[in-house]
């Protein structure tokens, strides 16, 4: 937790010290990640027709790091994130070019049920299952998929997951109450616990704090930094300081294109692309 605070200060100091200067324009603005856990390969996604909402995106996602996706509204952040666990296929007319590899496996050739077990997702608005207790919400992935667990295994998973999101002490006496009676921030942590309980390798989060107050937001940010020890995290955020505070790598997208991708510190101090610089200095977006 301390390290986040430090990092934040460091970044802010650096931002102040160096007014944005556009470094060597010849340098490739897309950094290559060594041995990525996930490899996005020339991915284009369309919701129907010839219009592609993201275009020819290639990027590797680093294992056990937080990768932030930034960009102005409508640039395709959510589309990219959803394409990683195939949630975009909910819309009937979607089609895509290129692919995404999880290790060696093409995710579009995988069984979506197995894929989503490996790549979990947390949404903008907390969405615990309203008919289920806190306890059942945590193990919902097992319950709804008909995976039988022993009572003891369930108890262990619930406690472990809730401890990981720092909710255990707050709810351990009301595990059998409905999850929807919690506060917004607690609900969101419950949703993260629900994703964790299913032991994914990667967790995708789409603006997980945009519906929360600053205190709840800070808690979730701390949590994400703690979680990267065991999980790989990809996070869409509108909040630049959030990206600067917690992410290791950042993507900047614009009009469906991946404009720049690299270490967060690097990007915030010396963006390589003019559009990134303009966005980060608030000239548009």
């Amino acid at each position: 937790m301390e390290s986040t605070v430090l990092e934040k200060k460091e970044v802010e100091a650096e931002v102040k010290a160096q007014p944005y200067k556009v470094n060597n324009m010849m340098q490739n603005p897309i950094e290559k990640i060594e041995s990525p856990i996930l490899n996005i390969d020339k991915l284009s996604v369309s919701y129907g027709g010839d219009k592609y909402s993201i275009n020819d995106v290639s990027a590797g996602i680093a294992k056990n790091k937080i990768t932030a996706i930034m960009g102005p509204s409508g640039c395709g952040k959510s589309t990219l994130l959803r394409a990683i666990n195939r949630m975009h296929e909910l819309y009937p007319d979607t089609h895509n070019k290129g692919s995404v590899y999880l290790g060696e496996e093409d995710i579009y050739k995988m069984n979506p049920i197995l894929l989503r077990r490996k790549i979990g997702m947390v949404f903008q608005r907390p969405n615990p299952f309203p008919t289920m207790s806190i306890y059942d919400n945590v193990i919902a992935g097992y319950l709804l998929n008909g995976i039988k667990l022993k009572r003891k295994e369930k108890d262990e998973i619930v406690e472990k997951s809730l401890r990981e999101v720092g909710l255990w002490s707050e709810v351990k006496d009301s595990l059998h109450n409905k999850g929807t009676f919690l506060s917004g921030g607690q609900q969101q942590r419950l949703c993260i616990a629900r994703a964790l309980a299913y032991t994914p390798e990667i967790i995708l989060l789409d603006e997980p704090t945009s519906a929360l107050d600053p205190i709840a937001t800070a808690k979730i940010e701390d949590l994400l930094v703690k979680l990267k020890k065991d999980f790989t995290i990809v996070l869409v955020t509108h909040n630049m300081s959030q990206a600067a505070r917690i992410s290791d790598y950042s993507m900047f997208m614009y009009l469906g294109e991946l404009v720049e991708y690299g270490k967060t510190k690097q990007m915030f101090t010396m963006p390589k692309d003019k559009r990134t610089e303009e966005y980060l200095t608030g000239k548009f977006g």
């Binding site: 949630m87 049920i113 989503r116 903008q124 969405n127 615990p128 309203p130 919902a140 709804l144 998929n145």
Partner: peptide, 29 residues
């Protein structure tokens, strides 16, 4: 019923028919 509820279930790999019968329908009971 908010669409995010359905998404929550689907993102856990729950098949569509189970999502409808075990998550969406009970919420509208």
């Amino acid at each position: 019923i908010p669409g995010t509820l359905k998404e929550a279930a689907l993102s856990l790999g729950v098949p569509y028919h189970k999502t409808m019968l075990r998550v969406v329908l009970p919420s509208g009971i």
